[in-house]
Write a protein that binds this DNA or RNA. Sequence first.
DNA 1: ATGGCAATGTTTCATTGA
Length: 256
Amino acid sequence: MILAAWNVNSLNIRLPRLLPWLETARPDVVCLQETKLEDVKFPVQAIADAGYSAHYAGQKTYNGVAILARRELPVEDVRMGIDGFADEQKRVIAATIAGIRVVGVYVPNGQSVDSDKYQYKLAWYAALAGMLRSELARNPNLAVAGDFNVAPEDRDVHDPAAWAGQVLCSIPERSAFQALLALGLKDSFRLFEQPEKSFSWWDYRMLGFPKNHGLRIDHVLLSDALAARCTASRIDRNMRKGEKPSDHAPVLVELL
DNA sequence: ATGGCAATGTTTCATTGA
């Protein structure tokens, strides 16, 4: 089974990239972030025609998450948001698919370390940790996939000196990310040997992609039970090429 | 030293993203 996560930066604009990718990558489950669509505008039919069911929680302009699953897979216990954490922003969707609890997340960006949005990001991370603790207690087969807006280590940053202390790389954010791992989750990417300078996001500006000036901020975290079943974890950086790419590449894991 | 792109709605600029 292949599980993927992709920040599409507008599902509307990215549908012509998503549909062919579903055909070639053939993921079984896909968590999408930044759909930027109200639910009434979700392209249910196009995705059904591609062979996938869709569950989604969206809003106009910002945020928005979805879980796609191959049509033959049962999708159960779909839930949106974080229990007990009031939030207008659509950033979390969870579903149980073929016995795996999948949580799709779009973590707040934080804007800059002196911003109110940064404080919201840290509070949000704490709430997510609370949710994942109880999810893990309920189902040991847990995968958390999406845009975490944190580069966990310096090797996940093209220029660690320039980014030191900046949003996405600051110590409190990295600690918040580590707190998720401390619940009993693994960063699937680091279960395997990987190419140097592997990133999942590149700025549209300043020739970010051609110069490989990127960050690895999109992740698939796996519980120990799932990590034991994981045979590969990779970033599909080819999707950052071509016509109208998202600024994020999809991340994928293969599970036995 | 700085900005440089893309998407959206508030649309011919402002805001956000990362």
